[in-house]
Design a protein around this nucleic acid. Sequence first.
DNA 1: TCTACAGTGAACCATATGGTTCACTATCAG
DNA 2: CTGATAGTGAACCATATGGTTCACTGTAGA
Lengths: 120, 120
Amino acid sequence: MVHYQVRLDTTFAALSDVTRRGVLEQLGGSDASITDLAQRFHMTLTGMKKHVSILEQAGLVTTEKVGRVRTCKLGQRRLEEEAAWIEQHRQLWSARFDALDELVEHLKRKEKADAQRKRR
Amino acid sequence: MVHYQVRLDTTFAALSDVTRRGVLEQLGGSDASITDLAQRFHMTLTGMKKHVSILEQAGLVTTEKVGRVRTCKLGQRRLEEEAAWIEQHRQLWSARFDALDELVEHLKRKEKADAQRKRR
DNA sequence: TCTACAGTGAACCATATGGTTCACTATCAG
DNA sequence: CTGATAGTGAACCATATGGTTCACTGTAGA
């Protein structure tokens, strides 16, 4: 899938900002308005609105405006794809490093054997 | 930790580019030179060098130059922190949505009961 | 030694990002 | 109706990003 890659792009990009990760943590505790978030992160309303839009774009947050206040909550996307990507690569990493470990172990054993052979 | 946040910043930023994720997958298969990678991703040497530097900066890749060729391999960092962050928030997500599910279930039951009461 | 090759660094470019201010709309409370 | 409040959008700004070209260094091979 092509879109899959675009999705990872936008999500990881969304997560690469401290403020936005902070907003997610905040929303994990309770829903909040733009004003709430703007205050908590010492930022203008406009600035926070942008961050929220980016999170919304990435599907990590959903918002609903009732009256004049827009309430933000955690979105439906639960980072499955991202977790999957990272997990997959952690396994790759591990596999490669395990192979390296084995090689090292093998060399150690060989070295030991050689040393013993030499001693005889 | 303050540095912890900076680290997440740089790692997620590193992962937010298709090319760089591609390089990681590539290196998961086998080590490669800058030239190899540049060719595979249709890019100039200079361009690829930049990507590799970013990945190296994030600790996801290590490189060693022997002779005139610089060989790139997967780095020591295995995305533990990032996986942890995501997992933590997936749990948060889940907790909140589970609570929502329960609420919905509760309302459903209540509705059903009300309907029955009315029918009598 | 001569030539080709791998990488590097500086300069440059277009576009994206993270933030602001300012002017505006819409809603709430009295 | 009026004033304060919440959000929005356009314009602007500085800096970062992803890429290029070009000139350069260092190494490998014939």
